[in-house]
Simulated scan of single mutants.
Amino acid sequence: MQKLDVLNGNKAAAIGASLARPGVIAAYPITPQTPVVEYLTEFAANGEIDAAMSEVESELSAMSVVTGASLAGSRTFTATASQGLALMYEPYFRASTLRLPIVMAIVNREMISPQSVWGGQQDSMSVRDAGWLQIYAEDNQEILDLIVQAFKIAEDKRVLLPINICFDGFYLSHMTEKVFIPEQEKVDGFLGIYKPEHVLLDPERPMAVDPLTNGDLLIEYRYKHLKAQQDALKVIDEVDRAYGELFGRTYGGAIEEYRMEDAEYAIVTTGSMSGAAKEAVDLKRAGGIKAGLVRMRMIRPFPKARVCKALAKVKSFGVVDKNVSFGWDTGIVYQEVKSALYEGDNHVPSVPIIGGLGGEDISIKMMMYSIDAIVKATEEKKNRETIWLMV
């Protein structure tokens, strides 16, 4: 039977990682990710996990350590946030192009400047094109479940790519809620014994890793990398269904649809704000407005086919972003959704919405206001200017 506990998001992530039995864990503490490292260190000290804990001097070193460990055949885990993610960018990019199935939690936090330690998705969204898979959690239960699933997705021979499980700093990382913890034996059966599918470092057979590469070979590398990302869209759906059959929890795969069966207006969200948006959808439904929600779980690869299908019949939609797309005067996910819909036949009015920057709360009232703006876009038959949700 699964154990019920009350956990903050960071502990949920640490328990999820420990259930996967990683061989090597390396991370450098940074707010609001620090407790993830502390919990894992505590688990190792108490003998609850059998993992080599690498105490490094920076995030760049943390990513370098798990890169080397993965090349040597270990299942690996790390975590970071914000400036820490920026500092590790060089080995972060290398990990994906070396096709290493590393799992890393990103506890979303604003980038500088002005200085902020509070939540915002600018950090992970800014590196979305570095070749990693990216999935965003709504609550603490999903954090734990996604960390476990991440190893299954990343290690699939059709994928073999590193993966980020992203969750909102403080709103999830430091707030507590009930979480069901899967049985270790069932997780072992779900993941299986890790058998590396890539070429391993071997002292008996010296080899060069990442040698100087000419154009033809580099193009082939990128081609196969992008194909593997597209295959990951199938794998996440498969893993979500298999996990649901075993543990009773499914999340919809690459996207979650809420009350979209007959929706005329859709609000698109990512992460923890989705709870407030669902409440707003319910309230609007009670008032006679057929609203629905599409939650973007996977940002990379972008599930364009699923998004196009979900929004195929709406009269208008809006996207709420906790980030900005510099130069576009909108959020990043808004541009991604618009790009996906360009290939579809439903060119309807849309509304870019930005809120939650620097940890600002996105309330139910703000979400209801956003839905009103989406409805108004239909009436005006044109796209709206960017709406900034501010108290």
Rank of each mutant, 00 (worst) to 15 (best):
T270C: 14
A242Q: 12
E256K: 12
N214C: 12
E279Q: 09
M296F: 14
I289Q: 05
D210S: 14
N214Y: 15
E279Y: 05
G252D: 08
S274V: 04
G288V: 09
M296A: 13
G248Y: 03
L212V: 15
L246C: 00
E257A: 07
I255S: 01
V294L: 11
L233F: 09
T213G: 12
G275S: 14
A266S: 09
A242P: 01
M298G: 04
A280K: 03
D237V: 08
G244A: 03
L233V: 08
K290E: 13
F247Y: 02
L283A: 14
Q229A: 05
E220V: 03
R249M: 04
K290Y: 02
T250P: 09
A242E: 15
K278I: 02
K224T: 01
G288T: 12
M296S: 07
R297K: 09
S274W: 05
Q229V: 00
T250K: 12
A228F: 01
M273G: 07
D240P: 05
K290F: 08
G252W: 10
P301N: 02
I267P: 10
K284A: 09
A208C: 10
I289T: 10
G275N: 10
K227L: 08
G248E: 07
V268S: 03
L233M: 10
R285A: 02
M296P: 08
G248I: 03
D210Y: 15
K284G: 01
E245P: 08
L246Y: 00
E257Q: 11
A277K: 13
E257R: 13
L217T: 14
G252C: 10
I299N: 07
L293M: 13
Y265T: 03
G271H: 10
K234L: 11
D282W: 06
T270M: 15
A254L: 01
Y258S: 11
L246N: 00
S274N: 06
K278G: 00
L217R: 15
R285T: 07
A280Y: 00
I236E: 02
R300Y: 00
I219R: 14
H225I: 05
T213E: 06
G248F: 04
P211F: 03
D210L: 15
A228T: 00
E220R: 10
L283I: 14
A291T: 04
Y243I: 02
T270Q: 15
L246T: 06
L233G: 05
L293K: 13
D231L: 09
I289P: 03
S274D: 06
Q229Y: 02
E245S: 13
L283K: 15
S272Q: 14
E245M: 11
Q230L: 04
I299D: 01
V268G: 07
Y251G: 04
L218Y: 14
K227V: 04
D262L: 12
P211I: 09
A277H: 10
R300D: 00
V281I: 03
S274E: 04
K234P: 02
V239I: 11
G253H: 08
R241T: 02
D282N: 14
L212C: 10
I289H: 04
D282T: 06
